[in-house]
């Protein structure tokens, strides 16, 4: 399993701002190693976020998203102490789920 994500969820008025930092190499499949072999693509494909069990965002990433992807978004609602859960899945079937408490 990959390294944990850093998730920050902050309540601002009637919206909640979420920032996620995922730890992933995001290999494009374009790059060659020193022997001239293509380094196979390895990147996050889908990211989903739920709040109180309700989906708030789903994103699809291509290999052109930077290494250790950052994502930020806001949703209406959310109260201090409630949980935001973020899950990503990469093209090798690896997946990781982390959660954060809204502050």
């Amino acid at each position: 399993m990959a390294d944990p994500m850093r998730i920050r969820a902050q309540q601002k008025g009637d919206v909640t701002e979420v920032r996620v930092l995922m730890a992933h190499i995001m290999e494009t499949g374009q790059r060659k190693d020193s022997a001239g072999n293509i380094v196979p693509a390895h990147h996050i494909q889908t990211v989903t976020a739920t709040w109180n069990g309700k989906p708030v965002l789903s994103a699809n990433f291509g290999p052109a998203v930077s290494q250790n992807p950052v994502m930020n978004f806001t949703f209406k609602g959310g109260a201090k102490g409630e949980k935001v859960i973020v899950t990503w899945t990469d093209n090798k079937g690896d997946t990781r789920t982390d959660e954060a408490v809204i502050s």
């Binding site: 919206v15 309700k54 708030v56 965002l57 994103a59 990433f61 998203v65 930077s66 992807p69 950052v70 994502m71 930020n72 978004f73 806001t74 949703f75 209406k76 609602g77």
Partner: peptide, 8 residues
Amino acid sequence: GTEPNVGT
């Protein structure tokens, strides 16, 4: 419910 405002 999600605002159309995203960044990456």
